[in-house]
Design a protein around this nucleic acid. Structure first.
Lengths: 231, 231
DNA sequence: CCAAAAGTGTTGGGACTACACCCATGA
DNA sequence: TCATGGGTGTAGTCCCAACACTTTTGG
């Protein structure tokens, strides 16, 4: 311990809610890992682990994400810190929760890194979870829904190149209501944050849709002019 | 320590940004305390202290608030957790930051509880602060500004009974721009969350303004109908 | 040629902005 | 009576929601 301090000290963990979008069955998914050890052995939980001395909380979250799921270089943001007494039967554990958004390109990594049995679950049909992880997930979902409408984070859940319809579906899935496609297109085009590509969607049994990319540069110009991204 | 754990453990503190509104000089203020001990002895800092075993983070924040400023029963919300290595020269300290909103009725308490010299400072003209408290304050201000426009938290900064003009000034001060009084009134009345009182403002050298109260009941009806509070 | 999804405009209503004057009160 | 802030209405504009058909492509 680095200095004199009279009180007992807690362990500090990071836990990470990992969101992914399944474009095949149009659902929002979450990565859970099966616990090998007590307490809650055999139960599903959000991936996480203890913070190490010398690393920041963000670094700890990134490290856990990488170690437990193989995922790297994704959107990762601090969510909330859970510290109630009794949330961990082993003792006093404070957990800094994060949430990550993973594009479908990287979903396969999760399945492959099977050391501790990581799996995708539909976000609205989850098993009973270890610890207070159900509450953490609720908070994460609320945050995702809220932030989606005023920040351009939805793109993190899509492949780099996507169609407008995919973007629209993403909003519909997360917000839980249908959107009018004409109005949605008008809105998204009017804020001018997409770059139109010369490529078309491939391998669909009907008219192919145009592909777009999120244009970070345009977005930064937008925000620097004081404009904001709104649904 | 309650269970076997191989890594070194951090101390966990709560720090609390306390906002108050000064209706005399129309500024947003923040409570700072002067540090008595090293490190940063003599510097100003956000009130805070270590979390104790057996209490939740919210409880710890409330306790610190009460101990250091005498303030009790106010709006208090978790803000963000700061955990970078090197943020405290004494060693590894993770700090869960909170922010509180205090009505002018209670401002005097702060001055009275002078044990550790607590003082109000204008939020936009602060001294150099201890630790990383300047960044914590920036995050807190951003959050306050953001949340003010979509949640009815502004009332927490006003006395129980207030005039529409005071409410408007609050928004102008925090958001940093002037608002049209006619439009502001229309907007605030149209959402129907205020109860008009039979009382008038007292002791002003001009026409007295009507007093209003925030009506929690009406607000709950509003949100339960799916409507939301927007600026 | 058929099935399936892509892509495209217009209109009406509600909300926001901009703007200026009279009213009530205490000194 | 005057100085000071309280309180009020309207018109133009913009944004949003509602709504249905034609186009393109692969099978």
């Amino acid at each position: 311990m680095g200095f004199t301090y009279d009180y007992e000290m807690p362990s500090v963990a990071v836990d990470c809610v990992i969101f992914g979008l399944d474009l095949d069955d149009n659902t929002l998914k979450v990565v859970l890992v099966e616990r090998g050890l007590e307490p809650f052995a055999g139960k599903w939980a959000i991936p996480g682990g203890f913070v190490r001395k010398g690393e920041s909380l963000d670094e700890a979250a990134m490290r856990e994400l990488r170690e437990e799921t193989g995922i790297d270089e994704v959107f990762l943001e601090q969510l909330y810190t859970f510290g109630g007494p009794g949330r961990d039967p082993r003792g006093w554990v404070i957990s800094v929760a994060y949430y990550a958004l993973v594009s479908p390109d990287k979903h396969s990594i999760v399945a492959a890194t099977d050391a501790r049995r990581a799996q995708w679950f539909p976000a609205n049909r989850l098993p009973r979870l270890a610890f207070d992880h159900t509450s953490i997930l609720e908070v994460a979902l609320e945050r995702l829904r809220g932030k989606l409408t005023y920040a351009p984070i939805g793109f993190e859940l899509l492949p780099e190149k996507f169609t407008i319809k995919q973007l629209q579906r993403l909003y519909e899935i997360v917000l839980g209501r249908t959107l009018d496609n004409r109005n949605f297109r008008k809105k998204i085009f009017s804020m001018n944050v997409l770059r139109e590509l010369d490529e078309m969607q491939q391998g669909v049994p009907h008219r192919a849709a145009r592909l777009y990319k999120f244009d970070v540069r345009k977005y930064k110009q937008l925000t620097s002019r004081g404009m904001s991204f709104e649904l």
